[in-house]
Amino acid sequence: MPREKFVTLTEAMFYILICLQKECCGTDIMQQVHDLTEGRVRIGPGTLYNLLDQFLKNNMIQETGVQGRRKNYQITQYGKEMLELEYERIKQLAKDYERSMIQ
């Protein structure tokens, strides 16, 4: 079944939003995601650029500073709500899995 846009988040979207809870720039996000997931999740620069652009258009993040071509971003309140929703969804998945293991 196709994933509805931003109703559920991909891993890349999820981790980018986690990183943007603190203000940071695009070039730092790739390294932060790598460190946070111990190398499990890799985000390419093209994917990162496209997702940041979409997040901006959907008001999930905002630009907080510009230095030449280097832009800083931070998550918005709406972005935090989407992140929280995704976190609840993942928790529910884990609970359903644990319940099925007990049975």
Binding site: G44, T47, N50
Partner: peptide
């Protein structure tokens, strides 16, 4: 090296 496009959905969209 990490490929430039790692998300197939985004890649297809572009």
């Amino acid at each position: 090296a990490v490929p430039i496009d790692t998300d197939e959905e985004q890649k297809l969209r572009m």
